[in-house]
Simulated assay, not measured.
Amino acid sequence: MPRATTVAVAYDCLFPYSTGGGERQYRAFADELGRAGLDVDYLTAVQWDGPTPAEDRFRIVPVTGRLSLYSPDGVRRIPAALRYAAGLLGALVRRRKQYAAVIVSGLPIFNVFAARLALLGSGTRIVVDYLEVWHRRQWVEYSGLVTGTIAWVLQRAAIALTPLATCHSQLSATRLRREGLRRPPLVSPGLIDGAADVSSPSPAATPPYVLYVGRHIPDKRVEVLPAAVAVARESIPDLRLVVLGTGPSSDAVRAEVRRVGGENWTDFPGFVSDAELDTLLHGALALANPSRREGYGLVVVEANAHGTPVVLVADEGNAATELIDAGVNGVVSPSTRPTDLARAFRDIADGGETLRRSARAWYDAALTTRTIRRTVEGIAAALQLPVPSPVKTKEDSP
């Protein structure tokens, strides 16, 4: 493998062996780099049983064993982050002359120090991809005063050490500069993988339902949805709530359902298959994501692919709102108050099929400008990688 065309992507998780926005994004990075003809290693932790799986466009390289990533309350565990960083350090030291470039996730932040130390003087170019950038108050709220302050200081140090940064929103770009980045970051055009193959938009299912998809953790604020749907039912009497996923906040969500008397109109399917998820997305009146923070907002894109409008909540840490064109593909609620969210649901119901068609049209237009492929092309150009001719695999065949 010639060094000039061999690259690595470093993240402690890999889709579909674990799920989440970061997992899907970095897998897509590896896929697109491999599709372009580069040799790609994906440096990750073990998340599967048995032998290391084989992939068409990249090699999976385990750098540490299976990790317990989250505490019971949904916070990233420092020991797991340190174990992965130590494994990444060792793997990159052993391969320090092998890679032309390494794309490393800036979360957890220890990854940045591991990559910089391992590759010092090797000639390997490093790009740090920042899914999110937090200010000090966010770190303290997430991890407590002492741990949060230390994490914020480490983040600032890592940003100062970053030779080339990429991010996926203007919010993150602004925060990177405020936190000490020495040169402007590369802001990606988008993270759409273009893989959605769904039929044309159709009317919302009967009875209509609001859908939530994701983990149940404090930052996602899933527990605000039952009261909001209860208020919206005053004007949409048959409206239901469907809550996918589970997590540390699940008990709080169920308690809210009981408090507002929503047992008869709320469903908790848990985790569902991809086919079931597509069906639920396609039929939802709206997909609601009341999260206080998002680094990009892939959920907006996925829902709009089905013609389903999205309801988000305005918050200083929520970059997903950058994807919403009001009245075109969704609504941004000013707060999580039940009346505000209920008004957003009613606005979407009033928009009817016209709004569903415009949401899908937003997605179709974004397919030409906001894709993972465009983002990876920008990273490759910034790294001055000599990209060979694209390699076709069976997945590329018509």
Rank of each mutant, 00 (worst) to 15 (best):
V146F: 14
V146N: 01
V146Q: 07
V146S: 06
V146M: 09
V146P: 00
T147G: 05
G148M: 08
G148S: 09
T149I: 04
T149H: 11
I150Y: 13
A151W: 10
A151N: 14
W152K: 00
W152M: 01
W152F: 15
V153Q: 12
V153L: 15
V153N: 01
L154H: 06
Q155D: 15
Q155E: 15
Q155L: 10
R156T: 03
R156K: 15
R156H: 06
R156F: 07
A158R: 06
A158Q: 03
A158F: 10
I159N: 01
A160Y: 09
A160G: 11
A160C: 05
A160V: 04
T162Y: 14
P163L: 03
P163I: 08
L164C: 09
L164S: 07
A165D: 11
A165W: 12
T166V: 13
T166E: 13
C167P: 08
H168G: 12
H168L: 08
H168R: 08
H168C: 10
H168A: 13
S169L: 04
S169T: 10
Q170D: 15
Q170A: 15
S172M: 13
T174V: 07
R175K: 14
R175W: 11
L176N: 05
L176T: 09
R177L: 15
R177W: 03
R177I: 08
R177P: 00
E179F: 05
E179W: 01
E179I: 00
G180F: 04
G180V: 02
G180Q: 01
G180K: 02
L181I: 02
L181G: 02
L181Y: 07
L181N: 00
R182S: 02
R183Q: 07
R183C: 01
P185I: 11
V187N: 02
P189M: 12
G190W: 12
L191H: 03
L191Q: 11
I192H: 14
G194W: 12
G194C: 09
G194V: 05
A195N: 14
A195R: 15
A195K: 14
A196R: 05
D197Q: 13
S200F: 01
S202G: 10
P203L: 07
P203W: 13
A204V: 07
A204L: 02
A204S: 14
A205Y: 01
T206Y: 02
T206S: 13
P207L: 03
P207T: 06
P208R: 09
P208L: 03
Y209A: 04
Y209C: 04
Y209N: 03
V210H: 01
L211K: 03
L211V: 04
Y212H: 13
V213D: 08
H216G: 06
I217W: 12
I217V: 15
I217T: 15
I217F: 11
P218A: 15
P218C: 09
